Amino acid sequence: MLRLISFIFVCALFNCGFSKEESCSRFEFLERLLEKMAKMELNFDQLQKNVNTAQNAMDTALKSAETKLETLEIKSEAFAEGLAAQIEKLDEQVTANFTCALTKKLSEMGILSTPTACPDGWIPFQNSCYLFGDDDVMFNDAQKFCQTFDANLVNIESPKENSFLRSQLKKRKAPRHWIGMTDMEREGEWKHYPSHSDVTFFDWGKHQPNNGRVSNCGAFWESFQYLWVDEPCTNKFKPLCEKKSDPGVSIQ
């Protein structure tokens, strides 16, 4: 605006040295020039508004795309978790059906004798029997409970055994059960209990183990989808006992 006023002022001074006719002609020229400049300024303002509008539209579209991408990622994670659960369930069913069919067929062929036997109330799996206790007791008392049956707290040594136990706990809707493992001797070095052999397979829940020296005993926990947690050994959970099955299966 300042440049425009200066321009008009200079033009006015310039007109002072001309005749009346020449001044009018030049004044009309300046009027048209100012009109064009005013229109150009309006066009520029409109162009700037259009640019701002387009920029806002792009920002809105970008935010919408980011939101949709986040939603898609959440759905993808949920789908992956659901698919993994279905695969795990299918694997358990296939394993159980195959084992049952194979045992039946071998028995019919006379290759297998009487199936592996477990005491009443105990659940067989592979070469072990498992007992799911009903009373909540401290870790050491849970071990004593198992010893009354010539058994110990469960020592989990493979993914298949762990998967079997998790499925059993889910069926029972059992909230918490002790696992025979501790890091009492040295923090972070988990040992089977009571054998004190190294634990080589783990299935910790999210952010577990997390309680350091306060928690030295392992357990299944429903809130963690029956993954493992570390807990104070003085907490009271149900025992989960394991003993070797009677030698009822023999290969001739």
Rank of each mutant, 00 (worst) to 15 (best):
L2C: 04
I5K: 12
N15S: 10
C16P: 00
C16N: 10
S23G: 05
F27E: 13
E28C: 09
F29R: 15
E31K: 15
R32A: 04
E35S: 12
K39L: 07
K39A: 04
M40I: 08
E41F: 06
F44K: 14
Q46T: 12
L47N: 14
N52P: 01
A54C: 08
N56V: 00
A57T: 10
D59S: 05
D59Q: 12
S64G: 08
T67Q: 00
T71V: 02
T71M: 01
L72N: 00
I74H: 03
K75M: 04
E77G: 00
A78W: 00
F79G: 04
F79Q: 13
A80Q: 15
E81P: 04
G82P: 08
Q86W: 00
E88M: 09
E92R: 15
V94Q: 09
V94T: 12
V94H: 11
A96Y: 05
A96F: 01
N97I: 01
F98R: 15
T99C: 06
C100E: 13
C100M: 07
L106E: 10
L106D: 02
S107F: 00
S107A: 03
S107M: 11
G110C: 06
I111Y: 08
I111L: 10
L112W: 07
L112V: 05
T116L: 14
I123N: 09
P124W: 03
Y130A: 03
L131R: 14
G133P: 08
V137N: 03
M138C: 14
F139W: 11
D141S: 14
D141L: 03
A142D: 07
K144G: 02
K144V: 03
F145I: 06
T148G: 07
A151D: 03
N152P: 01
L153P: 05
L153R: 08
L153I: 05
V154T: 15
I156P: 08
E157S: 14
E157T: 14
P159M: 01
E161K: 14
N162L: 07
N162R: 11
N162H: 09
F164L: 07
L165M: 07
L165N: 07
S167G: 07
R172Q: 13
K173Q: 14
K173N: 15
A174L: 09
P175V: 02
R176H: 12
R176Y: 10
H177R: 07
W178P: 05
M181Y: 02
T182D: 05
E185R: 13
R186G: 00
R186Q: 13
G188E: 06
E189I: 11
W190C: 05
W190Q: 06
K191L: 12
Y193H: 13
H196V: 03
S197G: 09
T200A: 04
T200Y: 03
F201Y: 15
W204D: 11
G205H: 06
H207T: 09
P209W: 00
R213C: 02
V214A: 10
S215F: 01
N216H: 05
G218W: 02
A219H: 06
A219V: 06
F220Q: 06
E222I: 05
S223A: 13
S223H: 12
F224K: 15
Q225E: 12
Y226N: 09
V229M: 08
P232C: 04
C233S: 12
K236P: 05
P239S: 06
C241H: 08
E242N: 03
E242P: 01
S245Y: 02
D246L: 12
D246W: 02
G248W: 03
Q252L: 11
Q252N: 11
